[in-house]
Nucleic acid binder design. Structure first.
Lengths: 242, 242
DNA sequence: GGTAAATCGTGAGCGGTGCTCTCGAATATG
DNA sequence: CATATTCGAGAGCACCGCTCACGATTTACC
């Protein structure tokens, strides 16, 4: 049926792609709140109301851009991890570096994903959660690999740090996550992994959003390498070949 | 001279305070981007242009609210740490809990400080950096105390984790920070402290901005307690009395 | 091939925003 | 008391998101 899409449909897809491209530019140049359908229309050489033939609202355009950004970040992370040497540490480091580099290259789009919510806009969970979990899913995979490489270890000792028993409810929640993702690592390690996950984005946030204070680090990348080692150590991934 | 400020000046200060109060409400209710001078004027029962007699622009109002928010967060943290038992772990935990609780109670204002920058708005560093460093300064103090309590330790071993020598430039940067804050802890521990700092706000960000996914943790506070222990361990602050 | 239906761009229009300017009234200062 | 300063009102400019009625074009159907 839809072998050769009708010319009109082709034109429509081209126009939508063009709107996304302009929207991406506006987003990168001015930031999320400055994204304006009227400006997109101007750039497109069309009257403002015409854009509504292709995009229902500003929020929908924002959602499309959010999904696109999540996808791009996920692709970058996947590519970086795939290209990295096989040791858990190198794979984790590749993931972390990919996140940081994309964030620094696309601060506005990164802010759209991990910054404060845009006023009045709420990302619809149905469309954004799936692409939004790609990074953490990949991180979980690396933890799985590291855990397997180390031969599983004892069930009580998950590698490092304060053991301690978990509150029952918390353990149950972690168990649910474990099942959903099909993981075999113990819940204590999973908990550490989640903290590493938020810690990674915390460090990237601080750098991208300028929380460290300007001029604090002459070579932020060097400091980030240190962060990588600290985070990796938290989940029992030593720097040497593991 | 300004013993009894002129009645007009009193009225002016009252009006400014009222504008801030309304702005705070708008911010809390609608979020940073929804903050509108016209809405403030309406609430104030005055025509929109009149507000400009007191506040130069929307950005200035935003800056005032940023400073106010930083101050309030700093006060909460100070109060919580002061009221906590004297062990480094308890003081650190009190700091972390205070940050989280304020963030959850005031998500919009928290987002204004630690989320993505509001579009088109850049906080002037002169006014915001000083109140913005209170939390990290307090954290540094706790690390100092913990370091002192432990008797200093050896200069090479800072307590935990991957030692490793630091790159020269990075060590120099950290040394500068150490001097500026008048710290005695070794730079390796300082580096770990910075990571803990960003890790703390990363975890709070994830919870406040809903990055974990809704319903993931039935008791987020319990998970946060785990995060506290993990972060504390990173800077060599054991849970037991130190 | 001709006709009916779906699509699309235009332009006007509504209510909202930040911000500027002028003007008259109220207030403080000499 | 006269002068100078402060302040609120109102009009206005340019922008925003979004809706609607209207022709022109293109598609689909018979």
């Amino acid at each position: 049926m839809a072998k050769t899409p009708t010319p009109r449909e082709q034109a429509r897809q081209r126009t939508i792609a063009e709107i996304l491209r302009i929207g991406r530019e506006q987003l990168a140049k001015e930031g999320a709140a400055a994204l304006s359908l009227r400006a997109v229309a101007r750039e497109l050489g069309v009257v403002s109301s015409a854009v509504y033939r292709y995009v229902a609202s500003r929020d929908e355009l924002l959602t499309l851009l959010v999904v696109e950004a999540y996808t791009e970040l996920g692709d970058r992370v996947d590519a970086a991890v795939d290209a990295a040497p096989g040791t858990p540490f190198e794979r984790f480091a590749a993931l972390a570096r990919a996140v940081r580099e994309w964030a620094l290259a696309e601060p506005a789009r990164y802010g759209l994903l991990f910054g404060a919510p845009v006023p009045g806009y709420h990302a619809p969970a149905e469309q954004t959660t799936a692409p939004g979990t790609r990074v953490v899913a990949r991180l979980a995979g690396i933890l799985e690999q590291a855990w397997a490489v180390q031969g599983g270890g004892s069930a009580d000792d998950d590698g490092a740090g304060p053991g301690g028993r978990l509150p029952a409810q918390l353990a149950a929640d972690l168990e649910t996550i474990r099942r959903e993702y099909g993981l075999t690592i113990p819940v204590q390690l999973l908990a550490r992994g989640i903290t590493v996950w938020s810690g990674l984005f915390g460090a990237v946030n601080f750098e991208v959003f300028g929380q460290y204070g300007r001029g604090t680090f002459t070579d932020p990348a060097a400091y980030f390498e240190l962060v990588i080692r600290q985070l990796a150590a938290q989940v029992g991934i030593p720097e040497g070949p593991g």
